[in-house]
Amino acid sequence: MTDPGRHFCTCKDLACPCNPNNPKNLAKGGLGCDACIRKNLARGEVPSCMFISLGDTSEWDDWSVEGFARFVSLHPRSEEGGRSSAEHSAAFEAARKN
């Protein structure tokens, strides 16, 4: 079970001022990923959660759009991962329509 006081976020950098689970952001209440997405769009970067969904980022330091393209080429999604994503996407779309 997840902590209801926390936002879903795969980023482990709780000191980041944009992390929705940074204690300062939690104290403000209701802040999700908006600050992170705004920062990344302004910098031409991709949020770390996109990288994390594909593989280990512990040695990665290029969060640019071009860096993401390289990361994807180095960490291709498995067939099982593709099927799982398709199933989750279909379930999400079905729930959204109801």
Rank of each mutant, 00 (worst) to 15 (best):
K97D: 02
S78A: 09
P4C: 00
K28L: 14
E93S: 13
S84N: 11
A90F: 04
R43I: 05
C16G: 07
N98L: 01
A90T: 07
N40R: 06
E80I: 10
H7S: 13
L14W: 04
T57A: 04
F71A: 07
E87V: 12
D61S: 15
V72L: 03
L74A: 15
C16W: 00
P76R: 10
E79V: 09
E66T: 14
K97W: 00
A27V: 05
T10V: 10
A15C: 09
T57Y: 00
P76E: 08
D13R: 06
G30L: 01
D62S: 12
A94P: 02
G44K: 05
G30Q: 03
E79A: 15
A35Q: 12
W63D: 04
E80H: 06
A15Y: 01
C36V: 11
D13P: 01
R43G: 11
L54K: 04
C33F: 05
G82H: 09
V72F: 01
R70Q: 13
D62R: 00
G29K: 02
F8L: 10
E59K: 14
A90C: 05
A27M: 04
A90Y: 01
V46K: 02
K12M: 14
E45C: 11
S89N: 15
D56Q: 06
G67V: 00
C33D: 06
P4V: 04
R77N: 08
N19I: 09
F51Y: 03
S78W: 03
T2F: 02
A35H: 09
A95S: 12
L26K: 04
S85V: 11
A91C: 09
C11A: 13
L26M: 10
R83A: 13
T10D: 10
F8I: 11
C49T: 07
A27F: 03
R6F: 07
F71D: 08
W60Q: 13
E93H: 09
N22S: 02
F68N: 03
C16A: 13
E59G: 15
F8P: 07
L41H: 08
A91F: 04
C33H: 09
R83F: 04
S53Q: 12
N25M: 06
R70N: 08
N98A: 09
R43E: 11
R77W: 02
G32I: 14
D13A: 15
V46C: 01
S64M: 08
A86R: 02
C18A: 13
W63P: 01
N25T: 11
L31V: 08
D3A: 08
E45D: 11
R70P: 00
R38M: 12
D61A: 15
D61T: 13
T57L: 04
L74Y: 01
S58Q: 12
G29C: 09
C11P: 04
V72A: 08
K97N: 03
D56M: 11
P17V: 15
N22E: 01
G44C: 11
F68Q: 02
A35Y: 08
